[in-house]
Design a protein around this nucleic acid. Sequence first.
DNA 1: TGTACATCAGTGAACGCGCGTTCACTGATGTAC
DNA 2: TGTACATCAGTGAACGCGCGTTCACTGATGTAC
Lengths: 182, 182
Amino acid sequence: MSSPPPIHPTAELLLQAGTALADQRGLATMTVDAVVERAGTGKGTFYRHFSDQSAFLIALQARFASGVATAVADAASGAPPGAARLRFTLNAYLDACLGQRGLKTFLTEARNVPEIQIAVDDALESFAKLIAVDLRTLKLPNAQASARLIVAMAHEVAIAEQVAGRRHPALREALLELSGAG
Amino acid sequence: MSSPPPIHPTAELLLQAGTALADQRGLATMTVDAVVERAGTGKGTFYRHFSDQSAFLIALQARFASGVATAVADAASGAPPGAARLRFTLNAYLDACLGQRGLKTFLTEARNVPEIQIAVDDALESFAKLIAVDLRTLKLPNAQASARLIVAMAHEVAIAEQVAGRRHPALREALLELSGAG
DNA sequence: TGTACATCAGTGAACGCGCGTTCACTGATGTAC
DNA sequence: TGTACATCAGTGAACGCGCGTTCACTGATGTAC
């Protein structure tokens, strides 16, 4: 909500190294050694900026989540609840995910670190709540449950697109059709 | 397809210990030490029956996948392709998942071990192909993409039900509605 | 401007721990004759 | 039935390695007077 606190340049460097590793390798190989090697700093430097490895991963996840959340909120603010807004927000979500290199790692591997899992689930739940408003406007019964499943589908499309590195029109179309936003 | 080879009693004991650990803790804590302690065997015994930890996890995943695949195939064989069969197979899938304690671990944490990830993805893809047949019968455009998204929704419901330990009627209903099987 | 001191970021060697894997040995079971 | 030998499963101590974390030290920057 409020703008994030100013970030130390070295911390930024480490986070960018983490982003690159998330994009190219994944969480399993994101060791402190790998991060500092990539960032070109000493190993001890890592602990000057992050209390431990877990805090680093959480900070990294927060960046991704923040970027996507902003894009979705912007898209949603432009239209009244309904099918059109649902279409906008789903596409905005997918475009935002596609634009964030390394995001897939958190979408698919986050389950290991409990705190990250919670953060990811929270973000998806917020998205579901937003979608539920559209569904209620469309008089869909079971709006809450349906919204949750639509988010699951969007999640699947986002992962597929990250793997492919580009949009997947057939999946997007199917998503909009099944969601009732087509 | 063919019946599995006879399994050594001690190997069975280890696999059951692994199942219990998957159910109660998860993949991250499934160390060889934890498995053999649970099974009540010596640590070296583990390696008499499995070449390494990875082979053990793959064998464990295969058991879950086989159980679910059989249930789904049985359900599908009882009816001609169409909305009714789609409803049957989705419910059969969910019931089978719910009946397999510890399955959730592989549904949510499998992404770590690449070989398991592949096996899980393969199983889900087979399921999607089955569903695509129903969708084509229903004249749905984009059957393949839609089937993939329906599997993603079923996946989400299966996880929710495993967490809750029981069926989640609202989610199942929403799944069938969004799938066009309602 | 100069001096003394405090603060802070950078560094990499060293530590400790967990965990997967190995291995030499033991005992039981099966086979040959 | 008895004997010698081969095979196989069980065992736990020991090994090696990776990796997260710590820490004493260095150099740079800021502050006080």
